[in-house]
C-alpha cells in the first residue's frame, strides 16, 4: 500500500467516509474476526483450570486438548479416540454430500435464472426462493421436522399414493437433516453461480450450438468453466456452513447421528471445558480451510476469482 493508493482512496471516498470505512472495516476484521480466532487458538492450548488458578503456576501451554481428540482420554484401550474422530469424519463427509447435493440442484436453477430472457418470470422465481428465508432458521428446522415426521405431509402423501405402507422414519435416516441443510444453503449456492452465469454472453452459447455442440458439451466447455468462480464460492460457503451448522443437526439429526459441532457445543456448554472445545473447533476450522483450498487447487480456481 503506497502513499498514492491511500491518497486516491481518500480522494475517492472523501475524508470523512474514508476514515469511517477504515475504522469500520478495521474494527470488523480485527475485533470481530481476528481477535476471537486468536483467543480461541490460545484457549485451545491451555489447561482447563478453575478461575482462581488462571494465571497461576499451572496455567501453562499444553497439547493435551489436541491429544485428546486424537487419542482419547488417558488409558483409552482403543488407542485412538474413535468416537470423536468418527463424528469428525462423518461431519465432513456429510457436509461434502450436502454441498454436492446443493450444487447439483442449484446449477440448473442458476443457469435458468441467469440465461432466461423473461426478466419478470426470473425475478418472481428469485423472490419465491427468498421468501422462506424470512423465517428464522430454527423455526424452519422445526417445520422440516414436522413435514418429515411420521404423520407429516410427505409420509401421508406417500401412503395415500400407496408407495409405502408404513411411514418412513426420515429423521432416523438423516434424510430430514440433509434436506434441511441442503435447503438452508440453496440461496448461497444459487446466487454466486447466478451472478456469474448472468454475465455470460448468450451469443457464446448460440455460437457453440451453431457449431453443433450438444448441451452437455456446451455446459462442460463453456458454461461451467465460465461459472467456475461462482461454483467454487457457492461450494465453499455451503461446505463451511454445513460443517459448522448446529441448529439443524440438533433439531433434525437422528438420535444416532451426532454433528461435530454438537460435540464442540457440549464441551463449551455442558462440560464447561472451553480449552477442549476450542481445540475441537480449531481442528474443524483448519481442516475445512485445508479442504477448501485443496479442492480449489484441484479445480484450478484462484482465490482472487472467488470474489467475482
Amino acid at each position: 500500500m503506497d502513499a498514492g493508493f491511500i491518497k486516491e482512496f481518500f480522494k475517492r471516498n472523501g475524508v470523512g467516509m474514508g476514515w469511517f470505512l477504515i475504522i469500520a472495516v478495521g474494527f470488523w476484521v480485527v475485533v470481530l474476526i481476528i481477535l476471537p480466532q486468536i483467543s480461541m487458538f490460545d484457549f485451545s492450548f491451555r489447561n482447563d483450570l478453575p478461575p482462581p488458578e488462571i494465571g497461576g503456576p499451572k496455567d501453562v501451554y499444553t497439547l493435551k486438548n489436541y491429544q485428546y481428540l486424537i487419542f482419547g482420554a488417558d488409558g483409552n484401550p482403543d488407542g485412538y479416540n474413535k468416537t470423536d474422530l468418527a463424528v469428525f469424519g462423518k461431519t465432513l463427509l456429510a457436509a461434502a454430500f450436502v454441498t454436492i447435493l446443493d450444487l447439483v440442484l442449484c446449477y440448473p436453477i442458476a443457469y435458468y435464472l441467469g440465461q432466461s430472457t423473461g426478466g419478470g418470470m426470473a425475478r418472481l422465481f428469485v423472490l419465491l426462493l427468498i421468501i422462506p428465508y424470512w423465517i428464522n432458521e430454527i423455526l424452519r428446522a422445526f417445520a422440516f421436522r414436522i413435514i418429515f415426521g411420521d404423520s407429516g405431509v410427505i409420509n401421508e402423501m406417500l401412503m395415500v399414493i400407496g408407495i409405502i405402507d408404513n411411514p418412513i422414519d426420515f429423521v432416523r435416516e438423516n434424510i430430514a437433516l440433509y434436506a434441511g441443510l441442503g435447503y438452508a444453503y440453496i440461496l448461497l449456492m444459487i446466487f454466486p453461480m447466478y451472478n456469474v452465469i448472468e454475465s455470460l454472453d448468450r451469443n457464446q452459447i448460440e455460437a457453440a450450438r451453431d457449431m453443433g455442440a450438444s448441451w452437455i458439451k456446451i455446459h462442460r466447455r463453456i458454461v461451467i468453466p465460465y461459472a467456475k468462480p461462482g461454483i467454487s464460492s457457492g461450494c465453499t460457503m455451503v461446505f463451511m456452513l454445513s460443517a459448522g451448522a448446529l441448529a439443524a443437526p440438533q433439531i433434525l439429526g437422528g438420535p444416532s447421528s451426532l454433528w461435530f459441532t454438537q460435540i464442540i457445543y457440549q464441551w463449551f456448554n455442558q462440560s464447561v471445558n472451553w480449552p477442549q472445545g476450542s481445540a475441537f473447533a480449531a481442528v474443524l476450522l483448519v481442516t475445512c480451510i485445508i479442504i477448501v483450498l485443496g479442492v480449489m487447487r484441484l479445480f484450478n480456481v484462484n482465490m482472487g476469482d472467488i470474489g467475482k
Binding site: 451469443n203 448460440e206 451453431d210 457449431m211 466447455r221 463453456i222 465460465y226
Partner: peptide, 28 residues
Amino acid sequence: PNERPTALIFQNLALFPLMKVWENIAFS
C-alpha cells in the same frame, strides 16, 4: 442451427474467452 450448412459470425463475435485461440478456431 447445427443441422444447417451455415456458420454465423455474431455481431459481438462471441469468441470463447477461456479457450485458447486455436481451440476456439477448432471448436467445431
